[in-house]
Amino acid sequence: MIALIRSEWLKLRTVRSNITMTCFAVILPLAITLLTTAFIDVYSVDDATVSVVLLGSGSLSVLLFGIIGVLAITQEYSQGTIRLTLAANPRRIRAYVAKGIVLAILSGGLTAFIILVGNTAGEAILDSRGAVGKLSNGDMGQAYLALIAMSVLVSLLGMAIGTLTRNPPSAVTVLVLWPLLLESLIGSLLSVAISESIFKWMPFQTGLNSLRLEDYEMDFGRWGSVGYFGLWILAISLFALARFKRHDA
């Protein structure tokens, strides 16, 4: 399995579009956090400023890690390398899991890096600009961990959607429209037909809710929200894996 993981890692890092997308996913939240802390009115700063900016911009990288997940598998189909991958590793579940592990480590590790650099640098900038009082709060550690979990889950979701569609544009479209449009649309329709509380069952919304600072704002609690979203990802991944195992390459 280690050999397979190393091979998948090499595949991921030797394609320019993957590197570009990864750079975007890292630079975007860091740039937003650093620019905001550099130019924000220091008198409006409180103990949640850095974490709110970092968690907000971090949710953009969550989506970008999802797109990296899409690219990791759809490139194989569009370039024909899936046949070589499966010829080299005919046990398809192992091939899928190895790719998933690489994506999880990449997205989780880089999100941890973004948090570490973004939070440290953001606090240092505010501090140097003379912001007074505490710059961190008790909830932010948990929220940051939830951001790491969301990055991992969404990258795996991207891979699952990519496996199902086998086509980069359609997989990216599904991944982006799901949180931005589909859930609001479906939620609105179902809330009229069933109940207003249906929104709390929308997986992406619930998952992203775990990135809020105050735990009491969440219907299922922070880790309940992550767990609920994770169950959806697990179900979609199992479905994708079943298709991956059965379909002609």
Binding site: T14, Q75, A88
Partner: peptide
């Protein structure tokens, strides 16, 4: 099976390296 089954953006050496790594 098909000579075109290689990622156009990857170098020849890296194409063979990932294959070699997958089978240790």
């Amino acid at each position: 099976l098909d000579a075109g089954n290689a990622h156009s953006g990857r170098t020849a050496r890296n194409h063979l390296r990932w294959l070699a790594m997958s089978n240790a």
